[in-house]
C-alpha cells in the first residue's frame, strides 16, 4: 500500500480536475437496476392488491393511468447521487435540507419530517440524532445515532435502510418505528409490511404487528404486540441460553405452554434461528398453531436445518398486507 494519498485508490480523497470530471460524468452510467431487475427476496412477494380498484375503472381511464404510471414510477425511484433530502421542519432551528454526511439533531420538544428522496417520509422524533450516509437511485442509507424515527417507505425492498452501529435495518416495503440509545440497544416496531434486521451475519425478518428488541451485538426474537410479558420473558431466556449453546428443556416446555395463536411467528423465528429446537416441545406446538401434521421426516429435516422443511411452514404464515390505504400519500413524495 502506498503511504501517499491516492485519490484513484480512495474515492473519499479529492483527485485532480480530470479525475473529478471523469468520475462525475461517468457516474451517470452507474448500475441502477430497474424494479423488475432486482433479485427479490421472499418478502418481495407480499400481496399486491393495489390494482384491484383500477380494474373496476373504465378502459380509457385505465389506459391513461397505466401510461402515467409507466412514466411516473421510474421517475419516483430515481434520485441523483448525493442530492440532499428536504426537511419539512417543525421548528425554526432545523435546517431546510439534509446533505450526505451531515447530521440532523432534534432537541426535547422538537421534531422534524424528512422526505426520503421521493420514496417516503420519515419523522424524526424529539431527542434524536440522524446522519445521512448515502443517497442515490436504489440506495438510500441513514444512520440512527440515537433517538427515535418513524419511517414510511414506498419502494422496492432494499432501497432504504437504517444503520445503527454494526446493525442494519432494511426496509422491505413498509412502515416502521425504530429507537436506539447511545449504547446501541433499541427496538423496532413494524406497523405495515416487513423489515429485515441484520447484525453480524444474523438476519431477522420482522412482519407488521411485531416488535423486536436488539443490542449492539444481536437481534432478539420478534414478538406480536399482543404477546404476554411472561411469554416474552421466557422466549428471551431461551434465546439467550441457546445463543450460548445451552438447551433448557423446562424453558422450552414453558414457551410451548405459554404460546398463543398470535405467537406463531415468534415460535417460527425461534425454530428457524435454532433448528435443533425442533426435537423439543416447541415444534409440535407450532404445528398445532399452524394446523400442520407432526411429520417425523419433516421434523427431522428441520432439526438438521433443512431449508425446504422450513419454507413449508414459512409459507403457512399469514402475511399481513401492506396498509397502502393508510399510506398512499407517501407514493407522491
Amino acid at each position: 500500500m502506498s503511504k501517499t494519498p491516492d485519490p484513484l485508490w480512495d474515492p473519499d480523497l479529492q483527485g485532480d480536475e480530470v479525475l473529478q470530471r471523469l468520475t462525475s460524468a461517468l457516474g451517470t452510467y452507474r448500475y441502477a437496476p430497474r424494479q423488475g431487475n432486482a433479485w427479490s427476496a421472499r418478502p418481495a412477494a407480499v400481496p399486491h392488491r393495489r390494482r384491484r380498484r383500477w380494474v373496476r375503472a373504465g378502459a380509457a381511464a385505465l389506459c391513461a393511468c397505466v401510461m402515467g404510471l409507466v412514466v411516473w414510477m421510474p421517475w419516483r425511484l430515481q434520485w441523483q447521487d448525493n442530492r440532499h433530502w428536504s426537511i419539512a421542519t417543525h421548528t425554526v432551528f432545523s435546517p431546510a435540507a439534509l446533505d450526505v454526511g451531515s447530521t440532523l439533531t432534534t432537541e426535547a420538544g422538537q421534531a422534524a419530517t424528512v422526505k426520503v428522496a421521493r420514496i417516503g417520509r420519515m419523522e424524526v422524533l424529539p431527542r434524536t440524532r440522524i446522519r445521512l450516509l448515502d443517497t442515490r437511485t436504489g440506495h438510500h442509507r441513514l444512520e440512527l445515532v440515537s433517538g427515535r424515527v418513524r419511517a414510511r417507505i414506498w419502494a422496492p425492498p432494499g432501497y432504504f435502510a437504517i444503520t445503527a452501529g454494526a446493525s442494519e435495518t432494511i426496509d422491505l416495503g413498509c412502515e416502521f418505528e425504530m429507537e436506539r440509545d447511545r449504547q446501541g440497544n433499541g427496538s423496532i416496531h413494524v406497523t405495515s409490511g416487513w423489515i429485515m434486521h441484520r447484525v453480524k451475519g444474523q438476519e431477522t425478518l420482522v412482519p407488521a404487528g411485531s416488535t423486536m428488541t436488539f443490542t449492539a451485538e444481536r437481534g432478539g426474537v420478534p414478538f406480536a404486540t399482543t404477546a404476554s410479558a411472561e411469554f416474552r420473558a421466557t422466549v428471551q431466556q431461551l434465546d439467550r441460553a441457546m445463543s450460548q449453546d445451552m438447551r433448557l428443556p423446562d424453558i422450552e416446555q414453558l414457551v410451548a405452554n405459554q404460546a398463543m395463536a398470535s405467537d406463531s411467528f415468534a415460535l417460527l423465528s425461534l425454530l428457524t434461528r435454532y433448528p435443533e429446537l425442533a426435537s423439543g416441545p416447541i415444534y409440535p406446538k407450532l404445528a398445532a398453531l399452524l394446523e400442520q401434521p407432526v411429520d417425523v421426516g419433516h421434523r427431522a429435516a428441520w432439526s438438521r436445518g433443512g431449508v425446504h422443511a422450513m419454507n413449508l411452514w414459512w409459507e403457512q404464515m399469514p402475511r399481513p398486507p401492506k396498509a397502502w390505504w393508510l399510506n398512499w400519500r407517501d407514493a407522491f413524495g
Binding site: 448500475y31 437496476p33 433479485w39 427479490s40 431449508v307 419454507n311
Partner: peptide, 21 residues
C-alpha cells in the same frame, strides 16, 4: 445453495456492479 432467497438477493446486490461493469 440451500435455497435461501435472501442469500440470492445479497449476492445479486453485492456483485451486480462487478458483473455490470
Amino acid at each position: 445453495r440451500q435455497g435461501v432467497q435472501t442469500a440470492f438477493a445479497w449476492l445479486h446486490r453485492t456483485f451486480a456492479p462487478l458483473v455490470y461493469a
